[in-house]
Design a binder for these strands. Sequence first.
DNA 1: GCTCACAGGCTTGTATACAAGACCTGTAAG
DNA 2: CTTACAGGTCTTGTATACAAGCCTGTGAGC
Lengths: 251, 251
Amino acid sequence: MNPSTANIEEAILSAILAGRIPPGTRLGEQKLADLFGVSRTRVREAMMRLETRGIVQVSARRGWFVVEPSADEAREAFQTRRVIETGLLQTVREVPPKVLASLKEHVAIERQAIETGDVSSRACLLGDFHIHLADALGNRLLTEIIRDLTARTTLISMLYQPTEKAEESSHDHEDIVAAMEAGDLAGAARLMDEHIGKVEAGLDLSAKPDPLASLRELLVPSTFSDVAPSMPHAHGAAAPHAHHHPSTKED
Amino acid sequence: MNPSTANIEEAILSAILAGRIPPGTRLGEQKLADLFGVSRTRVREAMMRLETRGIVQVSARRGWFVVEPSADEAREAFQTRRVIETGLLQTVREVPPKVLASLKEHVAIERQAIETGDVSSRACLLGDFHIHLADALGNRLLTEIIRDLTARTTLISMLYQPTEKAEESSHDHEDIVAAMEAGDLAGAARLMDEHIGKVEAGLDLSAKPDPLASLRELLVPSTFSDVAPSMPHAHGAAAPHAHHHPSTKED
DNA sequence: GCTCACAGGCTTGTATACAAGACCTGTAAG
DNA sequence: CTTACAGGTCTTGTATACAAGCCTGTGAGC
């Protein structure tokens, strides 16, 4: 089948949400075109759409790059999420039982992923909670907005988050759902505010914007914390090219 | 100067916010290309960006059209605005005096436009209030979102609003600012909720989606829109010699 | 050994050509 | 008088060609 631009957009966005694409990744038009079996035109369309959604950015004649939000942009993203998500909880009058059940199930899946140590899916799940919430309590429009914002905060976490606190986040989610079940929407909103605040506070926004964090991400197989000493021939590496990076090659 | 795609986007969006482009308007690629003195490629880019922002829509091989939100989409847009704008007011802790002054000034300009009967600018100003609010209390990201949403609700009003209540809206704005000045952010949020609710309630969402509303808009010279609160709503006689001519722009 | 200039390759930017489809219109048959 | 059909025109959809710029590697000059 011929993938449409929407397919390409979705593929990239969901890869970002799943934490598979680090910020700063270069997305070459021709590479993507070959990969998806379409012409550059389609890829370009998808890229431009993603650019208006704040997911990628074009650097003139250099290529498309997954955004690397600055500290200020990070703060903006978190403020925006706080506004929308607390606003949503406070606007809603009652939570249908079906929604409650669905959210509880989601939290259960989260905990399971954490307990089994399924690192690859847990980041995705933690973000998904918020998307599910918007979908269940809000509408399509709101869900889309939250989804894009979640992609952004996912990238931000990859850039600035020194330690992951997956368990704590999942507990927060649980508390929020509990407050909703008790009919205390205002309390749920407060908890949500605190939750997002906690995540934001857990970032190190004074850290260097992005000197070689993305390079490291690409070279490290993600679950391994300790880097193997100088790789023999990391030259012809995996999927996205990483070898021409503006920064210095030595550390 | 060669207008970039951003210029084209901005030109169209601001025209919509000002109420100069009614919903359902066809935007031909070639026409716009000639108008802006660029090639179709650029126009197409701008259109696709506007499409991802929910402002226009493409109908395959027929052209680009300014969106005509359905009743459901209208409700979604209003719910989203309610969520975000009340959320913003409740998230903010204090309002800087400068912001307060700026908002008061804006309301004053609104009232003036209403008193002098400046119909063309008052619709723009009423929407601008919300954008200014987001800009002053929030951040760039939030402002962008609110801007796009305001464009949408502006179009919705053109489709479904039987009577304009500019004066009432302006009063609402005044009350909201007053509550903010009194430091009662929660109260301001409640007033905002009621305000948006009032606007939404003032719509006739059971009305026909758009049989010939757009045609009527095009035929009426628009500056004469203060002719009467009630247009001749006789269904058959509205367009005497306007057979199916979608592109009547031969100026 | 170091610096600087330049050329080559690779990437996006932009325009244009052509293909495919939708709508309109005029014509002819019933 | 109504309806069906066919041709023409206008529109977007898509690919491709070429222009322009960035990055890198090389080699000469000092």
